[in-house]
Nucleic acid binder design. Structure first.
Length: 608
RNA sequence: GGCCCCGUAGCUUAGUUGAAUAGAGUGUCAGAUUCCGGUUCUGAAGGUCCUGGGUUUGAGUCCCAGCGGGGUCACCA
């Protein structure tokens, strides 16, 4: 029997032509024979049959009604008749209005499941020979990571995994904003009020220690401004002339001049922060292949802007500032160098791009940055294109919505943030509490294993909570309400996985390829059909830059399995052939769930 | 004000290229479980898909206008 899934061996990997494509071909042929019309594949609209109707896949026949010049039902019947008598995959049909519901033969499903089982990397595409760089995280070094960064990191890591599954070679990168006035503020506050405090002396994580001085600076600075206003000074003027601000600016100048003392302090404090970040990243389970620092790229950016100036791409105003005129592209004029010659954010991004382009053959550049910076990336795209970077024009700004608290936006300076480290601690503690009595039932478990399970479940809940929502949407996080562990959540899917594994452990020797002698029930068919949708889910998630689509797929698959599991026994099934089928089905589902959740950066516990 | 994004059950949300009676979760109420592991399953209740036009055999989805929310338009990053 010819396999329904055609396998083409290309460099050791498989290409799939799944159910829909096979059926599409059959239908094209049917239309050709019946109506002497060569239809385009685009006209074949196949969708999953709704559960209130009989069938697996449904053809929408409206597009052919005009060609056939017959009533929709009649067209559906004619195509249905043709398919049943001329193909071996389609066993029966029913036609309701303009909808042709097709039922596939039992052996199709068995063959499909066997193929999925025997295919390594099922659902993943072969190498497309192209390189995609994904920039994400991009922290400032003056404060610890908060919930907003968590969303960024999870989205960035996940999209990198998803694009890898779509055949790209992905380089994950991070641009650390390690220079600028904000860092000088932390440094200055530490000098003034730190009394030599170090992470070692205080027992604090370095990033938190520095963050406290950033907050301290702001507090003292505002007090100064208030005082100056009380003495009759205009607020705008006070903000500019407050001694603390002047000192910070002076420090930035000394930094730019390479002042030894300032540079040493800067390096010491940054090292503390990096150590703290590394810990957070590692707990969060994200990583980078290459890290860039703005202190290394801003000068390159300046040089690029000056080259653009020489080549007539940009122009200089009387005060010495350098600008790009983007009005012909519907945008405005954009500052590239200040009148004192120093660089701005845009300059740095140009420099970073240049350096990356030297380091890698980038075919596609993706920036994972909040939607508040959409204008910036529109401009950056135009500027890079003008400067001759091939990836500039088609760069992707993977723009995502803000995480809001019940009382509005998070503000680091005001201390109204949900700290990333604390949040992870809390999630893991919650997971531990929720599972405490259940884990105790697993008598052979060590406390170390229990901790590991709590870690996976707690982080799984957090990650899924964030990744399941459409990245474009702003999301609300209420610190008062804990993240759920029931319903459409990470632990729900993890639990399904753990449960399947529990079954499989008891029948390992029975798992393997199955023969064509089992008649499947509706839920089994539906589950196999779900499995066939996995490659599509990956493709769509990649095209739409949406980890949420993977999360959705996982939920539907897990929910459907649980319903099946409730209705039918696997190990208790007496018919050996049926039992073997159910075992293989369960195993395939567990594998797909595991791989899919892996694309979200979520680890799956074997037991929980 | 210009430009961009969002608006679906009380809350959180799914709904790719238009397609059958708009799906879930949560919360509320009512049930199931001799267990292969109840973080499960089944059911009830809950909808002017922001509003009004338009295109179409067919609109939550596409187009136009408006309303509401957010963002952005810095010699900040």
């Amino acid at each position: 029997m010819c396999s329904l899934i055609i396998k083409l061996n290309v460099h050791g990997t498989y290409l799939y032509i799944m159910l829909e494509q096979i059926l599409t071909r059959h239908i094209l042929k049917a239309v050709e024979k019946l109506y002497s019309f060569t239809a385009e594949p685009k006209m074949i609209q196949l969708q999953k049959t709704k559960k209130e109707f009989e069938g697996n896949l449904t053809l929408v026949v409206f597009p052919f009604v005009k060609i056939a010049r017959k009533a929709p039902v009649q067209v559906a019947q004619e195509i249905g008749d043709w398919l049943v008598s001329n193909t071996k995959e389609i066993e029966s049909y029913n036609a309701i209005q303009g909808f042709l519901n097709l039922s596939l033969s039992n052996s199709v499903w068995i063959d499909t499941l066997n193929t999925i089982h025997l295919t390594p990397d099922y659902g993943f595409k072969p190498d497309n020979g192209q390189l995609m760089m994904v920039e994400y995280s991009s922290p400032n070094t003056n404060k610890p990571l908060h919930l907003g960064h968590v969303r960024n990191n999870l989205l960035g890591y996940s999209i990198a995994k998803i694009q890898e599954a779509n055949g790209w070679t992905v380089v994950k990168t991070n641009i650390v904003n390690d220079r600028g006035i904000h860092i000088c503020k932390s440094m200055l506050a530490w000098l003034k009020w730190g009394e030599g405090a170090t992470p070692e002396s205080t027992g604090m994580k370095g990033d938190h220690l520095i963050g406290d001085y950033y907050v301290r600076f702001d507090k003292e600075y505002r007090a100064q401004v208030r005082q100056m206003c009380e003495q009759g000074m205009d607020e705008e003027q006070a903000k500019k002339e407050a001694p603390l601000m002047l000192e910070a600016q002076d420090m930035l100048r000394r930094w730019e001049q390479g002042d030894k003392q300032v540079r040493e302090l800067w390096e010491m404090m940054n090292a503390w922060v990096y150590k703290g970040f590394d810990e957070t990243y590692s707990r969060l389970g994200v990583s980078f292949d290459k890290i860039y620092y703005e202190s290394n790229t801003y000068l390159i950016g300046k040089a690029e802007v000056e080259r653009g100036l020489r080549e007539g791409l940009f122009y200089r105003k009387d005060d010495g500032s350098v600008w790009a005129d983007l009005r012909s592209d519907g945008l405005d004029e954009k500052l590239l160098l200040r009148s004192d010659g120093t660089s701005v954010y845009m300059t740095q991004d140009i420099g970073t791009a240049k350096l990356r382009y030297q380091d890698y053959k980038i075919d596609k550049m993706v920036y994972v940055v909040g939607n508040e910076q959409e204008y910036h990336f529109k401009v950056l795209s135009l500027l890079l294109d003008r400067l001759g970077f091939s990836f500039g024009k088609d760069l992707v700004h993977f723009s995502y919505g803000m995480v809001e608290l019940p009382n509005g936006k998070m503000k680091s300076r005001e201390g109204t943030v949900v700290d990333a480290d604390e949040l992870m601690d809390r999630m893991i503690a919650d997971a531990k509490e929720v599972s405490a009595d259940k884990v105790l039932k697993l008598t052979d478990i060590t406390s170390q294993e229990a901790d590991e399970i709590a870690r996976k479940v707690g982080l799984g809940a957090l990650k899924y909570f964030i990744l399941k929502v459409d990245p474009r949407k702003n999301m609300l996080f209420n610190p008062e309400e804990s993240i759920d562990f029931n319903g459409n959540t990470g632990p729900f899917i993890q639990y399904t996985f753990a449960r399947i594994n529990s079954v499989l452990r008891k029948a390992e020797d029975e798992i393997g390829e199955i023969k064509d002698d089992v008649v499947l029930n509706d839920k089994e068919i539906s589950l196999v059909q779900r499995l066939t949708e996995f490659p599509q889910a990956i493709e769509q998630a990649g095209a739409a830059f949406s980890p949420a689509e993977i999360a959705n797929y996982c939920y539907n698959l897990a929910a459907e399995f649980n319903s099946f599991y409730h209705d039918y026994s696997i190990l208790g099934e007496e018919n050996g052939a049926v039992r073997r089928f159910r075992l293989l089905l369960s195993k395939s589902i567990a594998e797909v769930l595991n791989r899919a959740m892996g694309l979200l950066g979520i680890e799956m516990p074997e037991r929980m």
